[in-house]
Amino acid sequence: MPQPLVGSFPYDKVKGTAVPKPTRTASEQGYVSEITKGIAVTMTHFFKNTRAMVRGERPDPVVDPMSEGITTLEYPDQKRPYPERFRGVHRLTHRDDGSPRCVACLCCSTACPAQCIYIEAGEYGGKDKRHGYERYPVKFVIDELRCIFCGYCVEACPCDAIRMDTGVHPVPYDSRDQFIYGKNMLLAMASQAGKQKHENPRAEPPDADYGPIERLAGHH
């Protein structure tokens, strides 16, 4: 026996317009003739496409997606190229000597509206040439699942240390922890053009164009 609907909706009081049942012709009701029509349409396209492919007339779906004709993409074997400024997953840039350009200033995590960047700052040791000048990220973690790909982190970074020019869109993984990108993962990524370096050259100790410590240089 059908169960009564939960609650007490006043069906008897509701006024509405009855929608008439569609009427069917004999051929529709007969099934076979309609199916034949459908298969005919499919086969027309099949032969048309096959002919276009054999003759080389089919537009390239990757570079020519707006043309007439069949431009179906065979994803993931074929991929449409992303525009140059497409915001993909992040990467951390390298200095010329391969060390991370990031100075662990937390500007990016401050700007991030999703609060998905976690950084722990460390100090270059007493012997390091950058001692006193730079801090570096001991930990740098981005939760790509939480990230809304707004690019604010890239805007906020004062030293071109973080970029979203990898051209890699967020990949589906099968567990959540795989979306947590650590420092090494981020440093291993490259731009669409394969670059890993930063583009923010700056005089740093002990570069030649970095001035001496004046007192030690004898200006008295």
Binding site: H131, G132, A203, D209, Y210, G211, P212, I213, E214, R215
Partner: peptide, 19 residues
């Protein structure tokens, strides 16, 4: 011009660092 450079991260003892 490049700024005048002076010592950074000088330890002033066990608790304080001076720039």
């Amino acid at each position: 011009e490049e700024i005048l450079h002076k010592p950074k991260a000088v330890e002033f003892g066990d608790t304080i660092v001076y720039d």
